Simulated assay, not measured.
Amino acid sequence: MASEPTLPDASTCIVLLLGNPVEHSLSPCIHNTAFAAHDINAVYAASQVAASDLADAVRGMRALRILGANVTIPHKERIVPLLDSVSPRAEALGAVNTVVARSENDARILHGDNTDIEGFLDPLREKSGLHAQPMTILGAGGAARAAAYALGITYAPTPLTVAARRPEQAQALVDALAPHVDNTTTFAACALDDASSAVRSSRLVVNATPVGMAPNAEATPWPNADCFAPGQLIYDLVYTPRPTRLLREAKARGADTQDGLAMLIGQAAAAYRLWTDRSMPVDVVRNEVMAHLAAAS
């Protein structure tokens, strides 16, 4: 278990999570555990912020001289023009999930980055046989955009199919990302109802939708489990419940499976490094998160 957290005082650094909703977030558990393990005088708090209040929240971050922030749905894209600068990968995605604050000429400068890419790739680094293989992403929102970019710059899938309920949204994602990834990557976009062939032929299938997340644990983004087979890796970015229906059915068909907890902790570890210049004590954090999930179940 992590050591007891330092009691907040006038010198305590503040890190915020900006989103709506935020009640379900595990980020306070993750980061406060890490701060305590490293005896860092900082506190991480989830803050529910309406879209109409986001600009005011960013102004407040400057006034409070915070250490940084995480940004989640629905603000990842909306916050970009409110910041002073963004990293190249955040610019390519058009989305920020991490804000780093620093002082410059007596002003507070806010820099945006996106650590979802590192988090997404973390559990894939130990997998073999992914380069230039066919892959499919279910969904075309922010998580799908991060996954597509990560796969495109790392594995050059041939092809990378993005399947969404609205095929025009999938096509827009493909068009936006194609200039930013390995030029040997080939893209395709289609409606979910037309994705059976792509799913069957894919070495990697990623669920980048929230379908199947608690409390709707018996929902699945892909009800056609007969498309799964040995030799495939099915990666569900949902991390609760563990496992999701999607992963249970994929495993029953002989496929390898990966849930979203590793991505959650991986993106948090990358953000923690940006704020503190220290490596997150991942084993301590994972144990605390598992205990938290067990207590909540």
Results as ranks from 00 to 15, higher is better:
H131F: 09
L204R: 01
R245C: 04
W275C: 14
A90K: 05
L130V: 04
E249T: 12
L17V: 08
V86M: 06
A250R: 07
T244S: 11
D9S: 15
A140K: 02
P8K: 12
R200C: 00
R286H: 09
R65C: 10
G231H: 05
V162Y: 03
C13P: 03
R59W: 11
N32C: 12
L18C: 14
E23T: 13
G260F: 02
G112F: 07
D283F: 02
A255T: 09
N97Q: 04
A295R: 11
G212S: 02
K127C: 11
N216H: 12
A144R: 04
G19K: 03
I79C: 13
V174S: 02
A178W: 03
P8F: 12
I234F: 02
V71E: 05
E218R: 04
I66Q: 05
V43A: 15
N287R: 15
S3K: 14
L26M: 10
W275Y: 06
E4H: 14
A176R: 04
F228T: 13
L264F: 12
T33C: 07
D56I: 12
H31P: 01
S202A: 14
G112M: 06
S52E: 14
S47P: 10
R248K: 10
T136H: 01
R59A: 15
I109E: 00
K251S: 14
D84Q: 06
L246P: 10
E118W: 02
A101S: 15
S202D: 05
R278K: 15
S47V: 15
P230K: 13
V58P: 01
T154K: 01
H292F: 09
S52R: 13
L54T: 05
